[in-house]
Design a binder for these strands. Structure first.
Lengths: 296, 296
DNA sequence: GACATCCATAACCTCAGGTTATAGATACAG
DNA sequence: CTGTATCTATAACCTGAGGTTATGGATGTC
């Protein structure tokens, strides 16, 4: 009997949740799709994996046996994909790094140059990460590392090296009344609508609306964006204001956007992020070593 | 990225064969289906796994990395299924055993009774195996063991315990001219058409047409059958004759079939067969122990 | 007893995994 | 040098799988 790892992920999530409806939400499929898939897995294995009740789904003995065994299957496949990726990097001599916004600002190119000195013939391919899911390419193995700003989703599952920290400022439409002032305090902004990342970004989004500096008050959301271009456009249109690292004034200078110094919010830290795994592929280890020499 | 183990088996077979057309034959799919699936795997992994030429398919570096890693994935899934099956046997207290024809003849029931003494509350569920692929249920894990006659396909991949050996006779239509004789020599049968198993059964089929006793001459095939009922019908109809264990006269007695003693062919051995694996689930180990006490 | 929440089924839709037919490329033999 | 054989790739087509929405049945709680 063959099986798709998708089906095993479905099973694992149902086992963890104990409830089809919640598991379906986590998996971004409808509940009937999930119930059908779980039933199909049971039919093909020829045994019940769950008992069903009003309280949800409880694992049977065989279900527990499968729940114990599934991580090994999924980990083996993850390992296989990583082995393929490492071999492909070796063959093509390309390290893939995803990034958000301005990556590591002015440190980006020196890091890459340092790496190329350590690995003649190699190059670094930079790829834009999705704001809604900045670690997707890391998780899937499409990239080897990423320049991300702390915090990011599932941060404890990855290793990271802080490269630089810079203050955060506020970005607003050039014609915004507050744009007349050279400097602002965060307290001045509590009632302003914000351009924010999607809810799904969790702590990442909280960080960029400075949720911890609001004394429990909810942020007013003027627009939700997932890409820097959309983010800039929404700001320029006056849909809302946004916190930004001060380097944004350099990397995203536009006549219709004003950046103003800001007190009262935590600074922003850029880190190089990579999967927690031992041993690391040698080229990735070299890239990390190069980054370390340029870290603050 | 998710993957189906079917796709990994396709990849592995192509890697082994180095040729899509031959791999497609082994996998019982068409060559265009296989080329499409391999291409899809490459697209999803984002790298070439094979180089193509007139000589066929050669693995690339990433392809070799995947070829090295795939057994771990497939073995992990096999292990998961076995764990589920063992848990299910434990929960239901049922041992599943497949068999061909008359299983272990008169030894079958004493073995089962002995096992039930060792494991009160347990029972044995007997399931007919396919003649064309007698080990399918063993391979898939649907059964825990099987009563099979030696030789059987992929025999070296399984453990076995010979239970009994009996002479082979010849079965023929009751009206067959040779039915007048009480006893025959195999040399008398060389020109007779035979009722045979499918070619795919390999050594199993060779055994039952006594290929090794024919001095290199091909057998004349009067009919190909995959089930005992079809086999008996073909013999009774005079489509051909067949070698049979002498117990067939007891278990498959019919007025329209004559069984005659035969000299000049090897006897037939029934064995209990189970997967080579350590450790064995305790219930299966008990069944094997029970069978051992009843072996010749 | 009404409502909320759980899983299951029905009906439907789109696309994936297979087929056959055939094309293009290339190596080899005559 | 040409024809043939054999390799992989593509096109067109078909059936069934994996998803959806709508809804049903069961059950627990207030």
């Amino acid at each position: 009997m063959d099986v798709d790892t998708r089906l095993l992920r479905y099973f694992r999530t149902v086992a963890e949740e104990g409830n089809l409806s919640r598991a379906a939400e986590r998996l971004f499929v409808s509940q009937p799709a999930l119930t059908k898939q779980i039933r199909q897995l049971e039919d093909r294995l020829g045994t019940r994996l769950f008992t069903r009740s009003k309280h949800g789904m409880a694992l049977t003995g065989p279900g527990e046996a499968l729940a114990a065994a599934v991580p090994a299957v999924l980990d083996a496949w993850d390992g296989a994909r990583r082995a393929v990726r490492a071999a492909e990097a070796e063959a093509s001599q390309v390290l893939r790094v995803s990034f958000l916004a301005s990556a590591a600002n002015e440190k980006t190119q020196p890091i890459i140059a340092d790496f190329r000195e350590r690995r003649p013939g190699w190059r670094v391919e930079l790829r834009q990460a999705s704001w809604g899911d900045p670690i997707a390419a890391l998780v899937s193995g499409e990239v080897d590392a990423a320049f991300l700003r702390l915090p990011f989703p599932r941060q404890d599952e990855f290793a990271s090296l802080a490269l630089l920290t810079e203050p955060r400022c506020v970005a607003m439409a050039a014609g915004h009344p507050l744009a007349r002032r050279e400097s602002l305090r965060f307290a001045d902004l509590l009632d302003e609508p914000f351009v924010a990342a999607p809810d799904a970004a969790g702590a990442f989004r909280d960080h960029w609306v400075a949720a911890d500096a609001r004394g429990g008050r909810e942020v007013r959301v003027g627009a939700v964006t997932e890409h820097p271009d959309d983010w800039l456009t929404a700001i320029a249109n006056g849909d809302g204001i946004a916190l930004a690292p001060v380097s944004a004034a350099r990397y995203y200078a536009r006549p219709d956007i004003a950046y103003r110094d800001l007190d009262g919010v935590e600074p922003s830290t850029v880190a190089l992020v990579w999967p927690k795994r031992h041993p690391l592929p040698a080229p990735l280890a070299d890239f990390i070593a190069a980054a370390r020499t340029h870290a603050d």
